[in-house]
């Protein structure tokens, strides 16, 4: 697996997509920093961006990479390598190169502006972490969907739909059900529902950094316990990890059974 990972990472890290993706973050972050010259404001802006862009790009990139390397994958399958190693290697290559683009694109400008040692270091670390996790989650999901669907257009469509679902539709449904069920206690429901969606979960990690003042306005005890203590962070980290592990297990399961 490490061998496959190594070469697909080599391949991807030199692709113009990776360059343009990393370059975009670099330019974007630099210009934000240059315009506002305020680390905390830029961290906040990027926190909004990371929730939208990292999942979207990871989804598209994951699907694209899978379909584009289809024939090469067949060649690899004829090599004396375990199947799961091939797909996990490729997946990790994609997730790794996406994360590298993100970390370098955002990290270099911030490092230049001296984020390390500033009071924003914690928030910045959270920002980087969320970007990396979302890249891993959504490229895994994309790989899984692509593996399941031979038809490229269908696979691409489903992957985008999955992104759309987690990024927008899910929240819409949640808001709708919350506002329709106001007479019931909704604390646990809304918490559990947000934990079930990796984007929401990452968002809550960010809210815990940015909007603690507002979150502390909740009346419910469960909420306050969850959000106000280390418990929230702990659960969020654990579930995010599950969100990576789940699709990866899916990739393994499909990869073992699939005909090429």
């Amino acid at each position: 697996m490490l061998k496959i990972l190594k070469y697909s990472f080599y391949d991807l890290i030199r692709s113009r997509w990776t360059y343009s993706y990393g370059g975009f973050y670099l330019l974007f972050t630099l210009s934000l920093l240059w315009l506002s010259n305020d680390l905390s404001k830029v961290v906040i802006s990027l926190m909004n961006v990371v929730l939208l862009l990292c999942p979207l790009i990871a989804t598209m990139f994951g699907v694209m990479y899978y379909y584009n390397s289809r024939e090469f994958t067949e060649l690899l399958l004829a090599q004396p390598v375990r199947r799961t190693s091939i797909f996990l290697g490729q997946y990790l290559g994609v997730a790794g190169s996406l994360s590298a683009s993100w970390i370098i694109g955002v990290g270099v400008p911030f490092a230049l502006y001296g984020v390390f040692g500033s009071e924003q270091a914690g928030n910045f670390a959270m920002l980087l972490f969320v970007g990396v996790v979302l890249s891993f989650v959504f490229s895994a999901m994309a790989f899984f969907i692509a593996l399941k669907n031979e038809n490229r257009i269908k696979g691409f469509g489903l992957a985008i739909l999955a992104w759309l679902f987690f990024a927008v539709i899910y929240d819409g449904l949640l808001l709708l059900s919350l506002s329709m069920l106001t007479e019931y206690p909704l604390e646990k429901f809304s918490l559990i529902a947000s934990v079930m969606n990796p984007i929401d979960l990452s968002r809550i990690l960010i809210l815990l950094k940015l909007d603690v003042s507002a979150l502390m306005g909740f009346t419910g005890a469960v909420f306050r316990k969850f959000l106000g203590t280390g418990l929230g962070m702990g659960v969020a980290f654990a579930v995010l990890l599950l969100w990576v592990v789940g699709p990866v297990m899916g990739i393994r399961r499909v990869a073992v059974k699939k005909d090429f």
Binding site: Y7, S8, Y10, D11, L12, R14, S15, S69, R70, E71, F72, E74, L75, A78, Q79, P80, V81, R82, R83
Partner: peptide, 25 residues
């Protein structure tokens, strides 16, 4: 099993390789 594929050389119909690797790599 997979190690048995050491015994088989295979020429696939369509040759497409990772674009950004060199031949040597």
């Amino acid at each position: 099993k997979w190690l048995y594929r050491n015994q088989i050389a295979y020429l696939p119909q369509i040759a497409r390789f990772p674009e950004n690797l060199t031949v040597a790599e």
